[in-house]
Design a protein around this nucleic acid. Structure first.
Lengths: 194, 194
DNA sequence: ATCATTTCTTAAACTAGATTAAGTATTTTC
DNA sequence: GAAAATACTTAATCTAGTTTAAGAAATGAT
């Protein structure tokens, strides 16, 4: 199994010896999640954090009237997990689904704890990436409080240029918080304006 | 200076020796922020994380048409910082203001780094509290995507019962993402329903 | 290739929540 | 403790975004 993308990801914030790399690698699981299959579904207790080696996952919730809300997209080189369920070990309400066939490296909660014990540097690594994730969610919450749907769409296009033409529009709508019909209207308006 | 509240806060997730406590305490600064004064304002580069010993801070942004949006309240025993600015060392867009005279323990970025070096356990501590904060922001973003204003208000009342009668309503409105007028309408409706 | 399913578009009717405006409480300040 | 400032309420009008519905385009399955 080739975990080099993940090891490079670690290397962005900490440096690991070969021995440490071997140890960590030995605690990883490799999995292919087929398009439309799930890593976890709402109601389950999450066991894994996932790192995407190839492909794309999305994390979404389904509200009481059946509407989907996308909390995150995880393309290649991104981390994703239902942090709530993983930390509390209670049933979560996140669905993590593969948008295309996706290769992931999985770390089980118990193995992650082992890693922290043997390689404390990893505490630092995960502190840093969680800090970044926190900043991103704060920013996004602020965008949802302060921007119009159109502004959020334009921002999405800027932040995820690679996703725009790769994923269904209705999922962009479910990410920025509007109906697919309204997003379609926005896009028509913008095409007209050119 | 009495930092025992903060030391107890650390003790919730890690255990420190007396020596470590002394070292950490020596790197803390104590400050009183008078009501309506700021810990940081938008445009400044953040230097500190704050832990509230007494009183209450709030973190908010001001959008292009002058509307305030509250990202967080920090009552006694809570942490608050402009994480974006603190991490990137770029000018932030958060205002952190005291709602009443507030005592805080401050950790400067450089002292925080010293603490991580000398007491690596703190990496774990901050990883854990940032994880919890991340879960809370994800949850709140999801609420903003999936609940009505009324549902968000009721949830706020459940989650922050102590704040409901302590803080101005317009700031609850700025937290849940509605105008003060609309919140007033919601409350009138609920009072009528009883 | 064809049928079925899913996605996208357009448009009319609708509504949750914003805006504007004016009046009433409540705090703050000197 | 009066005046000023800030916070809250009510109500009419307005609008960004939703809902419903129906057709067109694209994608997937056999």
């Amino acid at each position: 199994m080739d975990f080099s993308l993940l090891l490079n990801n670690f290397a962005k914030h900490i440096s690991l010896t070969k021995t440490e790399e071997k140890f960590i690698t030995s605690l990883l699981e490799y999995k292919i999640i087929r398009a439309k299959d799930f890593l976890v579904q709402q109601g389950e207790v999450s066991k894994y954090s996932a790192f995407v080696l190839n492909g794309c996952l999305r994390g979404y919730t389904i509200d009481s009237d059946g509407t989907e809300h996308v909390l995150s997209f995880a393309p290649k080189d991104w981390w994703i997990a239902d942090m709530y369920s993983l930390l509390s070990q209670k049933p979560g309400n996140l669905n993590i689904e593969a948008m295309v066939d996706t290769e992931v490296a999985l770390i089980s909660k118990t193995n992650q704890e082992k890693m922290y014990e043997k390689v404390p540097k990893l505490e630092r690594f995960f502190r840093i990436i969680i800090e970044k994730s926190l900043v991103a969610y704060q920013q996004r919450l602020n965008d949802n409080l302060s921007l119009t749907a159109e502004e959020r769409y334009l921002k999405f296009c800027k932040v995820y240029p690679q996703l725009i033409n790769e994923i269904p529009q209705k999922q962009i709508a479910a990410y920025i918080g509007v109906t697919p019909e309204f997003l379609s209207k926005l896009r028509a308006k913008q095409a007209r304006a050119k």
